[in-house]
C-alpha cells in the first residue's frame, strides 16, 4: 500500500507541473498585462519597459516559467504584483475562510445527499422517491451562482433573516455554504440512489435474503457497503472542485477566501497570485484523487493493492 501511494505521488509530479505550465502559457496568451494595470494606459514606453524589467516580464515566457518554478521549489511563491504582499501570506490569511466555507458546504451536502439517496432507493417508484429525486435534479441542474443570488434575494433582502455578504460570524457562513452545497446535494443524492438500486439488484443481495437476513440488515450491511464505493470516490473528486467552485460564490458573497483572491488576481493579471492558487488547486486535486483511490481500496477488497 505504501509503495503504491509513493508511486502514485511520484507520477503526480509531472501532472502538477503540466498544469502549472499550461496555466502559465494561457495567462501569457490572454489579453491585458499587469504593467498596464499598474501604470495605466497612458504611461510612457520608458516607464513600461522599466517596470517590465523589474517584474521580469521582459524575458521569454519559458524563462519566466523556469524562474517561477525555481522559486517555488525553494519555497518562495513570489510577491503579488499589485499589493507587494508575499503570495504565501496573502493565501495564508484567506485559506481558513475557504476551508470553512467549502468544508461546511461539503459536509452538509454529504449529510443530506446520502440519506436522501438511500431513502429514495428504498422507496423506489413511490411519490416520495419521485419528489425527492425531482428536487435533487433541480438542485443538480441549477448553477451555484444562481442559488447565491436567489438565497440573497429571499433570505437577505426579502425576509432579512441573514446578512447579504461579508464574514463577521457564523451567520455569514450559512448562505454561501448553501449556495455552494445545494448542487452537490443534488448530485450526491442522485448518485447514491442509483448505486444503491444497482446493488439491490445484484445477485448477492438475493443470496443475503435467501440466507434469512432481515431487509434492514441487507440494506445497511450488504447493499450500502458496496454502493458507498463509487460514491466515496466521487466525493473525493468533488472536494477540489468545490474549492475552485468557491471562486464565484466567494465573489458574490464578498467572502474573503482564496476564491475571491483568485477572482481579483485574474481581473488584474496578478500572475504570481494566480499561479500559486492554481498550483494549490492542482496539488489538492491530485492528492484527493489519490485519497479517493486509497479509500476505495480500503472499502473494496477487489481493488486493494497487495
Amino acid at each position: 500500500m505504501l509503495r503504491y501511494i509513493t508511486k502514485r505521488l511520484i507520477f503526480s509530479i509531472p501532472i502538477v507541473l503540466g498544469v502549472t505550465l499550461i496555466a502559465f502559457l494561457i495567462l501569457y496568451l490572454t489579453p491585458g498585462d499587469p504593467v498596464t494595470n499598474l501604470l495605466g494606459s497612458r504611461a510612457t514606453p520608458e516607464a513600461r519597459a522599466e517596470l517590465s524589467e523589474k517584474l521580469g516580464l521582459d524575458q521569454p515566457v519559458l524563462v519566466q516559467y523556469g524562474r517561477w518554478l525555481g522559486n517555488v521549489l525553494h519555497g518562495d511563491l513570489g510577491t503579488s504584483i499589485l499589493t507587494k504582499q508575499p503570495v504565501s501570506e496573502a493565501i495564508g490569511s484567506r485559506l481558513s475562510y475557504t476551508l470553512k466555507l467549502t468544508l461546511t458546504a461539503f459536509l452538509s451536502s454529504v449529510l443530506i445527499g446520502i440519506p436522501v439517496g438511500i431513502f429514495a432507493a428504498a422507496k423506489q417508484n413511490t411519490a416520495a422517491d419521485h419528489i425527492s429525486m425531482g428536487i435533487a435534479m433541480f438542485f443538480y441542474s441549477m448553477p451555484d451562482f444562481w442559488f447565491g443570488l436567489m438565497l440573497i434575494l429571499v433570505f437577505s433582502l426579502t425576509l432579512q433573516w441573514l446578512p447579504v455578504s461579508g464574514a463577521y460570524g457564523p451567520k455569514y457562513l450559512i448562505l454561501p455554504a448553501l449556495a455552494l452545497g445545494l448542487p452537490k446535494i443534488g448530485s450526491i443524492a442522485r448518485l447514491m440512489r442509483a448505486e444503491t438500486l444497482e446493488v439491490m439488484r445484484e445477485e448477492y443481495s438475493l443470496t443475503a435474503r435467501a440466507k434469512g437476513i432481515s431487509e434492514w440488515l441487507i440494506m445497511f450491511k450488504h447493499v450500502l457497503r458496496n454502493a458507498a464505493i463509487p460514491v466515496m470516490v466521487m466525493l473525493f473528486l468533488a472536494l477540489p472542485w468545490l474549492i475552485s467552485g468557491a471562486v464565484v460564490i466567494e465573489t458574490i458573497f464578498a467572502w474573503p477566501g482564496m476564491g475571491q483572491l483568485m477572482y481579483q488576481a485574474i481581473l488584474r493579471k496578478d500572475f504570481p497570485v494566480i499561479q500559486a492558487l492554481l498550483l494549490i488547486i492542482a496539488i489538492l486535486t491530485v492528492l484527493f484523487n489519490l485519497l479517493g483511490d486509497v479509500v476505495a481500496g480500503l472499502l473494496d477488497p477487489r481493488i486493494r493493492v497487495k
Binding site: E203, Y204, L206, T207, N226, P301
Partner: peptide, 11 residues
C-alpha cells in the same frame, strides 16, 4: 444460485 461469480458479496 446459478452464477457463483455474482452470488457472493465481494466486500
Amino acid at each position: 444460485f446459478q452464477d457463483p461469480m455474482v452470488s457472493l458479496n465481494p466486500v
